[in-house]
């Protein structure tokens, strides 16, 4: 294959030095399949091979429970899976893990890099440790649970769904958030909810500073029911006491949007 080299690669993985994908990659068929469950080792596989194997199992073999062992922080794993199934990572994927998914229940026994669960449509992703910046960017639906801390701009451009962070979050969390909910058990960095249009932010710790047009919100019974339900669903124990923050409606709001723009966020 033109442009492909294995020079200097200890693992023997072929890659394209220009940064292109491997157009001729095939699923490695290295899974151990036991009924509806499958498990495969990813150490010596490229990103594309891992995703090819996962898709083969889910779509062609009808497997409903897949475990990926040693993902090795490779990027863009388990992206675009549009089916109800269980996916487990034993180890840490890299950037953009589980983006664009619609339906899967994902458990990551490790940490993740930037943008985990970005543009997620439905399903749930539970990350046992920490996550990088832009976690849940533009998420539209489903639940994204991070048991450690996360970086900056969590849920940037969020259009729905729920992000739960058991630790603390960095700066500009909820930046330009348009719908959905974030439950942050720890502290929040500067600029929380900056330029948000709508949605709800719950913070259990301290907030370094609020962003433009993010204001304290009034608590009601639906907030309590929602938080208690989510904590029970994911076995997160007793929720701490939260402060609620919403959009002050002084900067952006739906009333000033054209109908076609409004549809982009519903």
């Amino acid at each position: 294959m033109a442009g492909v080299s294995t020079a200097g690669s200890k693992s023997g993985i072929s890659y394209d030095a220009r940064g292109l994908v491997e157009p001729d990659a095939e699923a490695p068929h290295n899974s151990e399949i036991d009924g509806q469950k499958a498990r495969f080792e990813a150490t010596d596989l490229t990103t594309r091979q891992i995703n090819k194997e996962l898709r083969r199992l889910v779509y062609e073999e009808g497997i409903t429970d897949v475990t990926i062992v040693n993902p090795g922080s490779k990027h863009s794993l388990a992206v675009g899976i549009l089916k109800r199934c269980n996916i487990t990572f034993e180890g840490s994927p890299g950037w953009f893990a589980c983006g664009l998914i619609d339906g899967p229940t994902v458990h990551i026994d490790g940490r993740v890099g930037w943008s985990a669960g970005e543009n997620m449509m439905s399903g749930s992703v539970v990350i046992e440790r920490g996550a990088g910046s832009l976690t849940g960017a533009a998420i539209r639906g489903g639940d994204l649970v991070i048991k450690g801390d996360v970086g900056a701009r969590t849920g940037i451009d969020q259009k729905g769904g729920t992000i739960i962070v058991m630790g603390s979050v960095g700066i500009n969390t909820g930046f330009m958030m348009q719908r959905g909910r974030q439950i942050i058990c720890g502290d929040a960095g500067d600029g929380l909810g900056d330029s948000m249009y709508d949605g709800k932010l719950y913070v259990g710790g301290t907030v370094a500073s609020l962003g433009i047009d993010c204001v304290p919100g009034e608590w009601d019974d639906s907030d309590t029911e929602f938080i208690e339900r989510k904590f029970a669903n994911y076995g997160l124990g007793s929720p701490p006491e939260f402060q609620k923050f919403v959009c002050g409606k002084q900067l952006h709001n739906y009333d000033s949007l054209e109908p076609s723009e409004r549809k982009l966020v519903i």
Binding site: M121, S122, S124, K230
Partner: peptide, 10 residues
Amino acid sequence: PGDDINWLED
């Protein structure tokens, strides 16, 4: 998916 209505919440 999950134990509640998940994405339909929105």
